[in-house]
Computed example of a mutant assay.
Amino acid sequence: MNNVFPYRLYLVISEDACNGQPLNKVAEMAILGGVDIIQLREKFDTSEVFLKKAMSLQEVLYKYNVPLIINDNLDVARRSKAYGIHVGNSDLPPTVIREGWPECQCLGYSIEYLKQLISKETLVSDYLGISPIFDTLTKRDTVTQWGLAGLRQIRGITDKPLVAIGNMNAQNAYDVMKAGADCLAVVSAICGAADPEKAAGEIRGNIERAL
């Protein structure tokens, strides 16, 4: 596995996803349950509000040595001293990010079409987000629902670390990992849980069983 991406349980968090619970509290509980990397995704915030949340979240993450990934905002990623950034097929291209932020330690790129796998954007990315594996209400602007068969197909084409996202939970974690994922990205099953630590722990346990 790429040495800049040894992670197994990836939390994608936003204030809305936390259903009224404090974002930093949810993040900390998730870390205690087994989350080892966190992406802050605030699509509708101004950059300044997004940055304020990122800096506040960093205070929690530094305590546990958990890296921060920023979703699709290069300015916030740089100013918050994030570990990296994640972008989609219609966002700022990875090649442009590499030029504009050479210090970026970890660059993630979402895959929606198989042809992306042989592009220069994939080549410069550190990990690939396979999105969605299963339909989800969290993200409605996607093109392909990959399923386990699609994930296996991608695993056979690339040796890049694969992060599976899209309705990931404790029930399907084992099967998704066995299908070729290196890491699971989770939103609702942790952020929306009454006990985020317990929810993360159950998912992490099934990830470890599949390794």
Rank of each mutant, 00 (worst) to 15 (best):
D175R: 14
C104P: 08
T122I: 04
D195W: 07
L68C: 02
N89A: 14
S56M: 05
Q145H: 09
I118E: 13
L148G: 07
T136W: 08
P94S: 09
S188Q: 05
D126N: 14
S47C: 07
K63C: 08
V76S: 00
S110C: 11
L61G: 05
D182Y: 06
G33T: 12
V76P: 00
L162I: 09
G88N: 05
N65R: 15
A17H: 04
S47M: 05
Q153R: 06
K178I: 12
R204A: 08
K63F: 06
F44I: 08
C106A: 08
Y64T: 05
A173C: 07
L114R: 04
R8L: 10
L117N: 01
G201P: 00
Q116N: 15
P161C: 06
I70H: 02
L61C: 12
Q171Y: 10
A149C: 05
A185C: 15
V176C: 08
I37H: 00
Q21E: 06
K43S: 06
L9Q: 04
N3L: 07
I97V: 12
G166M: 10
T158M: 02
L11Y: 10
N167H: 11
N73F: 01
E103Y: 01
Y109G: 01
Y10G: 03
Q153I: 11
Y64R: 09
V176P: 00
A30W: 03
V87Q: 02
Q171R: 10
I85K: 01
K81R: 11
N206T: 09
N19I: 04
